[in-house]
Design a protein around this nucleic acid. Structure first.
Ligand SMILES: Nc1ccn([C@H]2C[C@H](O)[C@@H](COP(=O)(O)OP(=O)(O)OP(=O)(O)O)O2)c(=O)n1
Ligand SMILES: [Mg+2]
Ligand SMILES: [Mg+2]
Length: 1152
DNA sequence: ATCCTCCCCTAC
DNA sequence: TAAGGTAGGGGAGGAT
């Protein structure tokens, strides 16, 4: 148990957070809506009035054994919180619902602690609930030390982890609730700290520091975003987007000229909304836009910019609002809590469980329209109306949950608003209330745990409980009959139990849960459906077949659209039809397991045990909404952020992973730029690729490096990216007792593996580590780098001697004249080391490797001079071994590498095939039997043919490839003049209409002239050392009138510009309705002064004010609420402050 | 047979 | 406007 504490090295961050959090409880922020953690808990506390006094008065006779004890209960406990509370108070203890001021509590009662809590409570006496119950039983206070939850032990070790990165994480933190996430901004943890210095901040060597984890990749873009406030052209909508037959130009991009947007209205609307966007006369221009240009154009709208990946704070913001993310996070948390609770409860039930025959009583308990019901608590007037919970009322907004009134209209959870409103125009829309869902859920779980069955969490609003033991027990003691009647008694007891639960949950939460009872999980679920809403139902053994038979197959768990359609093709619509089908036929169609399972289900058989949960097999982070990049750099930065997120989650789970998969969604080339759904991914092809690390890792740096390499290897036009994700599998628990950090010392000895590199110790002597290694065991991707982004895989490195992989790589870099322009892959020359060791080759990152291979046999068409930037032309898919590959080298490769290389050749760089692998046609060998019916999929029938079609389309896309060369610098040198910079939407927006057109046109011409393949080079990707210079040379070329001031990124100051911007963003969005707290504004002013006077960074100060200006003025919240007014004033004050400070320094008036 | 990898599908 | 995440079961097909 104590291991929990020591194990988690992610606690550094958490510790800081927690400390910050406690500090925030200081009264000075009391009124601020942007009050951070403290505020969250404070508000929660208000809801729970403390009735202790009353309790104590009514039970003064109980021995006051807990006198002097002030207890707090954390998490789910057994007995439940309310019981402990009552008992403690009755016996003289003080009780804290929430830890207001930590020092007041003397004991914390918990069954187990999450790592986060373990740290938070590190200084407390943390005891198991049994301490309370057994003390009461004993009639005296038992020594708490016998009930420790945690062993003692320092876990300083963990504090060393990732020192500087810690505070800087800008992404959401998976374990935290949405509110913690959003409020735990830099503003809390750093910004506030810097001017004031926070007492109590953990001082064990971890201090807030700039954010090395987030390289300033998209520097230019971000800089300009911040520097040039958007032009708010009025939305002078011709408000009739409908039926307009004018060309919504960008929707019909030329990848498919004949293609009309799936939803012309939506497109037209989107267009119309964009301030001074290209009018219809620009149709031609727009039609020829690259995806990047289109995105740049799209992002001219500040609202879109704010909501999408263009916002530096995007990941955090997105996750904090994503219901699906919360659902997943909650589920994972609950799962592990239940797991640990079961452990702590003792291994008893296990043995007991199977004792009695096979008769089981399983309850499935689930809230009725959970989100909706909870959100309705604050709008009781609407309970009788059709209501849904969604983020908005636009056509693409998703209905997370709707009440049963709405369901009568045909509305369903997950439905898009467009359809929902079609079915019911009266539909009322309520906002999400995530904290309320957490609260309701907690009470629900307490009630469930209270009954003492075996509990398995299904989701935030749903559990399975095996109550067999309870029911049998009760039936035995109540009804004396051991005969036939006992079953009836049992059933009745089960029903009673269900009633009790329902009543209790309703009482505690005000919301209805329904309960299904059955002899197994399947039947409990089926019963649940019958029970809803607000009811309970038991499926008795004798009714099983009848009940099931009449159900549609899709109401069986695991059967939905795809399998349902397959079955329908076979003429099976109802479960009864399943029973009438031979196992053979089912297994042939669906596979052995699925076929058999369905047949079992049809017979009412389900052997799955409640509570059987296997350990986690994967951890991932992905986003497929709001992705609109205008440069490769942005895309890579985003991937890096995802990897940061992944690292956090891995640490939280206390695992490392060996197998990395990068998931990419790219706009289908026949799909319009605009998705139907606002900022949605639209129609996409998906591409996954994985890499294996020789040794498991959780390092964001390591993972990011490889992930970015993989991303690059696809050479997608960044503007076409719609979804990105990183997933780790092959997980290993992090072993404690040291060496966590030193693990990479051993990686070399792993068979074919990757990085887990260096604790960025530049001094790390590579040879020494590698020398004893057999070449075949080399590790790819080991590069001593400063920054995974700023120094991409193609950055030059020091040469080394010997054939060590790292050395080869180093040489390779050294000799690559293009080394500094990482993405110009096809146009690069490089030198193949004589006698490349195959393993060495294999050890190279994927993108390099393919190039190297390409050179094995020089092929002018494929690789070549810088002047002929040809891409690999549609490579021969059929050939077993692409001719570009030296067979000798190839054969020496490990098998998996062979496959991978073939793969990479199979898909010529510019148009990899979608991830749907080409499977050998079943028809080939199948003979007469139809082996595999097409698998239907949401959008039409897929399966083999579908895939083939997709490939086809993609191949075709390859031909179009020339259309979407990236905007970039094709030159071999790191040439700052030859720009091809990203188009900056901000700047574009500020241009007069005609000028803008000219710019776009010009931009396009350059691009076409260069014709260099995807290549975006920006100052931001240069090595750190060059960054400063780059900032100057790297000014967007498009420096027209509203030229943004020069920006200095990086660790210019105490707090990086971007970080502060993110803080401001979070701060603003959290207080947009109430306005900022005056203290906070003062602090901002003070900080701005210090930026001007101490940091002496005028650009930063100006930039921040402009950023704030943008935030405030771009906040289109209706009605100029009081919040906005306060914000406007705050903005004015800030502006004044900076000007005043500038004058103080003898500088003139600034143009802010 | 049995394993592994890369998907698809499903659930909330 | 809008916040389309995430983990596990399991099938297909290849390697062993
Ligand atoms: N596509 C979906 C499905 C569910 N949820 C969320 C909102 C739901 O309230 C919650 C629980 O899911 P349920 O399937 O239990 O649905 P409800 O509780 O809303 O309705 P009911 O259980 O009564 O069918 O998960 C969601 O956001 N999107
Ligand atoms: Mg529900
Ligand atoms: Mg549910």
């Amino acid at each position: 148990m104590g291991s929990l504490l020591d194990k988690n090295s992610s606690q550094v961050r958490k510790r800081i957070e927690n400390h910050t959090f406690s500090d925030e409880q200081g009264d000075e922020y009391e009124e601020s809506e942007f009050g951070g953690f403290g505020d969250y808990f404070r508000r929660k506390k208000i809801k729970l009035q403390n009735l202790d006094a009353e309790l104590r008065a009514t039970s003064s006779d109980a021995p006051q054994i807990f006198k002097g004890v002030v207890a707090h209960v954390s998490g789910y406990t057994q007995p439940a919180l309310h019981v402990l509370h009552k008992e403690l108070v009755k016996h003289g203890a003080g009780f804290l619902q929430y830890l207001d001021s930590k020092t007041m509590a003397t004991h914390i009662i918990a069954s187990f602690l999450t790592p986060k809590k373990a740290v938070e409570f590190a200084r407390y006496r943390i005891v198991k609930p049994a301490w309370v119950t057994e003390s009461i039983q004993a009639g005296k206070l038992l020594p708490w030390t016998d009930y420790r939850v945690l062993d003692e032990g320092p876990r300083q070790k963990t504090l060393k982890f990732d020192g500087g990165n810690v505070v800087s994480q800008s992404n959401s933190q998976p374990r935290l609730g949405y509110r913690e996430q959003t409020q735990n901004s830099h503003y809390n943890t750093e910004f506030r700290n810097s001017p004031r210095s926070v007492a109590g901040l953990d001082t064990k060597g971890v201090a807030p520091s700039p954010k090395p984890g987030t390289p300033q990749l998209a520097g230019n873009l971000l800089a300009s975003l911040g520097d040039t406030p958007p032009v708010h052209a009025d939305v002078s909508m011709m408000d009739e987007p409908l039926g307009d037959n004018s060309d919504p130009a960008p929707a019909s991009n030329d990848a498919a000229p004949s293609h009309r947007p799936a939803n012309p209205e939506a497109s037209a609307k989107a267009l119309g909304k964009i301030p001074t966007g290209p009018g219809r006369k620009d149709a031609e221009l727009v039609k020829e836009m690259t995806p990047e240009e289109y995105n740049a154009w799209l992002l001219m709208d500040p609202h879109i910019r704010k909501a999408s990946s263009a916002n530096p704070n995007f990941l955090q913001q997105f996750y904090s609002e994503s219901r699906l993310h919360h659902l997943s996070t909650w589920k994972a948390e609950l799962k592990s809590k239940m797991q640990r609770l079961a452990l702590e409860r003792g291994p008893a039930p296990r043995a007991v469980r199977r004792a009695h025959g096979s008769r089981r009583y399983i309850m499935h308990v689930d809230f009725d329209s959970f989100f909706c019901a909870v959100s309705l608590k604050k709008h009781p007037d609407l309970v009788d109306k059709p209501v849904a919970v969604a983020h908005g009322s636009g056509a693409g907004s998703e209905i997370a949950s709707c009440n049963y009134v709405a369901r009568k209209f045909g509305i369903k959870n997950g439905m898009w608003m467009k359809k929902g409103l079609e079915q019911c125009p009266e539909l009322k829309i309520l906002p999400y209330d995530f904290p309320a869902y957490e609260d309701a859920s907690q009470k629900f779980y307490e009630a469930i745990l209270d009954i003492g069955g075996v509990v398995q969490s299904v989701s935030i609003d749903e559990v399975l409980v095996d109550v067999t033991t309870i029911v049998l027990q009760e039936a035995k003691s109540a009804g004396n009959g051991v005969d036939e009647g006992s079953t009836l008694h049992e059933q009745e007891h089960a029903n009673n139990l269900a009633s009790r639960i329902r009543a209790r949950v309703k009482e505690q939460t005000g919301c209805a849960v329904s309960v299904g009872i059955g002899g197994n999980i399947l039947l409990a679920k089926v019963a649940l459906r019958k029970a809803k809403p607000d009811g309970q139902h038991q499926v008795k053994p004798e009714e099983v077949l009848d009940v099931l038979g009449g159900l549609e197959v899709t109401s069986l768990p695991g059967v939905a659209y795809s399998i349902g359609a397959k079955l329908e093709e076979m003429g099976i619509k109802y479960v009864s039809g399943l029973r009438a089908t031979s196992k053979e036929r089912l297994t042939t169609a669906l596979g052995p397991k699925t076929g058999e399972k369905l047949l079992d289900y049809a017979k009412g058989v389900d052997r799955t045990e409640v509570g059987d949960v296997s350990p986690r097999k994967s951890v991932s982070a992905e986003v497929s909404w709001g992705i609109r990049f205008i440069s490769q750099a942005e895309a890579e930065e985003f991937v890096q952020n995802l990897c940061g997120e992944l690292e956090r989650r891995l640490l939280n789970e206390q695992v490392k992973g060996k197998h990395l998969t990068v998931k990419i969604m790219r706009r289908s080339l026949d799909a319009p730029f605009d998705a139907v759904k606002h900022l949605g991914h639209g129609k996409c092809d998906t591409f996954n690729k994985s890499a294996v690390f020789g040794i498991a890792t959780h390092s964001a740096e390591t993972i990011g490096r490889e992930a970015i390499s993989i991303l690059r290897s696809f050479r997608f036009s960044p503007g076409d990216l719609r979804g990105l994700g990183v997933q780790m599998t092959r997980l290993d628990p992090i072993k404690r007792g040291g060496a966590v950090d030193g693990s990479q010392k051993r990686l070399q000895f792993q068979p074919f593996g990757g990085p887990s590199p260096p604790r960025r110790s530049h001094a790390d002597p590579i040879e020494e580590v590698f020398s004893p290694v057999k070449p075949t065991n080399s590790t790819p991707g080991r590069r001593a780098e400063r920054d995974p982004i700023d120094e991409g895989p193609m950055t030059p490195k020091k040469p080394k001697d010997s054939t060590h992989p790292a050395v080869v790589r180093a040489r390779y870099y050294e000799s690559d004249p293009m080394a500094k322009t990482p993405l110009n892959i096809s146009g690069t020359q490089f030198i193949l080391p004589p006698n490349p060791d195959p393993a060495v080759v294999a050890a190279l990152p994927l993108d390099i490797r393919s190039r190297l291979m390409g050179q094995g046999v020089p092929r002018p068409s494929r690789q070549s001079s810088p002047s002929i930037p040809s891409r690999p032309q549609a490579a021969t898919v059929e050939e077993p071994l692409p001719s570009q590959i030296d067979p000798e080298v190839f054969n020496a490769l490990p098998e998996d590498m062979k496959a991978e290389i073939l793969e990479s050749y199979r898909r010529p760089g510019t148009s990899p095939a979608p991830a749907n692998r080409l499977r050998s046609p079943h028809g080939d060998r199948v003979g007469p039997q139809v082996k595999k019916p097409a698998t239907p999929t949401k959008k039409g029938i897929r399966g083999m043919w579908g895939k083939a079609r997709e490939r086809q389309r993609d191949a075709e896309a390859g031909l179009h490839q020339t259309n979407f060369l990236g905007v970039g610098n094709p030159e071999p040198q790191d040439n700052q003049e030859s720009e091809g910079e990203d188009l900056d939407p901000e700047i574009l927006a500020a241009l007069p209409e005609d000028l803008r057109r000219e710019v776009l046109e010009d931009h396009r011409r350059q691009r076409l002239a260069r014709r260099s393949g995807l290549n975006v080079s920006g100052p931001s990707r240069r090595p750190q050392a060059e960054l400063d210079e780059a900032v100057i040379g790297g000014q967007p070329k498009l420096t027209f009138p509203p030229a943004p001031p020069k920006m200095s990124f990086g660790n210019a100051g105490l707090t990086s510009l971007q970080e502060v911007k993110e803080m401001l963003d979070t701060w603003h969005s959290k207080t947009r309705t109430s306005g900022p707290h005056d203290d906070d504004v003062q602090m901002l002013e003070k900080y701005l002064r210090s930026v001007v006077l101490e940091e002496r960074n005028m650009e930063k100060a100006v930039s921040l004010v402009k950023w704030l200006d943008w935030l405030v003025t771009a906040d289109g919240t209706r009605g100029e609420g009081k919040g906005k007014q306060i914000w406007v004033k705050a903005l004015a004050r800030s502006r004044h402050t900076v000007n005043a400070a500038a004058r103080e320094r003898g500088l003139g008036e600034l143009d802010i």
